[in-house]
Design a protein around this nucleic acid. Structure first.
Lengths: 360, 360
DNA sequence: GTGAAAGCGCTAACAC
DNA sequence: GTGTTAGCGCTTTCAC
């Protein structure tokens, strides 16, 4: 099959038109200094006139790099992943890299292989891996012996693997400490899907804080959700059945917290008088929930940007003789945002009536 | 600078190892039938053993195609764009295309030029353009004389330009009709940023329905938001000042509708007794708002998928001799989802007390 | 400071 | 059914 409409301008046409060699055009395009200013200007004029765009394939073929980063992610309809992706895109753009996007819906080995194969075929210079970790999800890392650098976002840190994470255990600890300081003792949790590392970390933070405060931790205080609002709603109902004396609940993301708030309303439970609620993520809507939601804010664009910086450093290092940039694991710190869903002394709370408060 | 760690397996190594020509390997990799089954199998074995991955650059250089689609979008932290992107990714994946993602934060001409230049350099086979349309945003279409196919998502339809849209005017008309049927007559609107085509369309749908029902339409019934929850909250306050007799409000997306609901609560207005509210988008949270939000659902993954189908057809057409696939404009239909924020007879409404209802 | 030649990995065209 | 040859657009190397 013959290709059509080849109106693409090549370096040769520019060279011919400008009366120089292709080499000189190449030097101009790559800002190599050894070109007479007048020659350079003349070439640039021709380039603009003809609308010449260097073919990245040809360059890539020769240089063995693509100036493209592979991004493997999932759940971009959720706040966290999409926000992170924005950070990734901005920083890559800034550093002159393009993005090749793959969504990994089912983290099964065959899918992983397919995605990786596609990225390698496309000669990406490095990979950003930011999708949930199911079981031995990372085994390909050992198996495939990747020849290009990879940075993981929000994955469990492992020796010899570059990753950037948010210290969500610390974030949860702040949130829990805040509840304890406000006099809450019987605190439940709605977790995310425990196949996600971030969900396990948040659960762990909850456990730790309670243990440190010498409070009992029982399984009936724990319910697993799936990040969705609906699962939060269902989760709270379950929790109230198993753990009726609960005074406060930590919900592992804000969308589920919305479901929890909704269920409280249905059940006639006042927040925070009957039940204090703390979420996680600080989605833009959280301050408009009723009552406004106490939550933990993560700087996700920074997360994405930092990962890109790490990755590009690793890529550059491979081009030096002494390639010894091995960044390890970077931790970012989240921040507790206190609103009225967790503060008992309630000038802010709804003044309208309701069932009498049932605090013990 | 010399490239390092060239452990990439090439077609020549495979050919040598298998004792065939590179051509035969190529034929195997491309599933061209004229190869003896045993030869094919033998080659495949070697391919697997060596872990050979065809270099897409080399192929692209030869064939002048990249099997990559450029996606230009913005606002992926919002539900609509991110959801659409999911649809785009799935369908591209299915059809064997990769995605090169660009986020266009500021739709200024120079940014547009930069993004387009980058995509062209990268030899994308086609472009999906799904970002807000500011003024003469599309002028590049005429200026640059793009040599590759482009499909627009949610842009104003123009002759000779391929696009796929959701008929939001129709969606809004359904929503408005529903309000009218429920006896509401004085209906305000919070629009999206009017630089977005979708926002203008929704406004137009609102106008049309009121006009058709012989109701007055004044400027004081209209407030412009920016899609954010905060702008919805502010918008309602403005609207109530300018248009205090308002009985219902159409809010151009669900996030702003959340802000509107929140403001109602602050002001002690019951929904829908004092004010009926209809949103747009049907984000997953909408049914968990209080009261659950009546809204208009769009099939955004279908939107994305359809656009990819159109684009790939256009791409294929360019490779036929009789290249005459010009798809024009496809319209998808939205669907009204009725919940309790707009239905007066309220078995569903909050049974707890509150300020007395103030219906006229 | 500039040009000529070679070749990156692959596939189209044609030979056998 | 399989091999040979040429060349895609660019950059690297080495002349001059």
């Amino acid at each position: 099959m013959s290709r059509r409409s080849d109106n693409q301008v090549t370096i040769r046409q520019v060279a011919k038109e400008a009366g120089v060699s292709t080499q000189t055009v190449s030097r101009v395009m790559n800002n190599i200094p050894e070109v007479l200013p007048e020659t350079r200007q003349h070439v640039l004029d021709v380039v603009n006139r003809l609308g010449y765009r260097p073919n990245v394939f040809a360059r890539g073929l020769k240089q063995n790099r693509s100036y493209t980063l592979g991004v493997v992610t999932s759940g971009i309809e959720y706040y966290g992943p999409s926000r992170t992706l924005v950070g990734v895109e901005q920083k890559s753009n800034e550093l002159g890299y393009s993005l090749s996007l793959s969504l990994l819906h089912q983290p099964e080995p065959e899918n992983i292989q397919r995605v990786l194969g596609s990225l390698i075929s496309r000669q990406v210079d490095g990979i950003l891996w930011t999708t949930q970790e199911i079981g031995a999800n990372l085994s390909w890392l050992n198996g495939e012996k990747l020849s290009i650098p990879v940075v993981f976002l929000e994955a469990s840190p492992r020796p010899g693997v570059a990753s950037v994470n948010i210290d969500s255990r610390m974030g949860v600890r702040q949130a829990m400490q805040h509840l304890l300081e406000n006099g809450y003792r019987r605190i439940g949790i709605v977790t995310g899907p425990l196949s996600w590392w971030a969900a396990r970390e948040r659960l762990q933070g909850w456990r730790e804080t309670l243990a440190d405060a010498d409070l009992v931790v029982e399984e009936r205080q724990i319910v697993e959700g799936d990040w969705s609002t609906g699962s939060g709603a269902r989760g709270l109902k379950q929790l109230l059945e198993m753990y009726p004396e609960m005074e406060a609940v930590f919900v592992s993301n804000d969308q589920m917290a919305l479901g929890v708030l909704q269920t409280c309303r249905q059940l006639g439970r006042q927040v925070p008088e009957d039940l204090a609620i703390v979420g996680y993520d600080d989605i833009p809507e959280a301050e408009y929930f009723w009552p406004p939601l106490t939550t933990v804010r993560q700087n996700l664009t920074e997360l994405g940007g930092t990962a890109v910086e790490m990755l590009t450093k690793m890529i550059s290092a491979r081009w030096q003789i002494d390639a010894t940039y091995s960044p390890g694991c970077v931790w970012l710190e989240p921040e507790l945002i206190i609103r009225s869903s967790s503060v008992r002394s309630s000038a802010t709370s709804n003044s309208r009536g309701g069932e009498p408060t049932q605090n013990p």
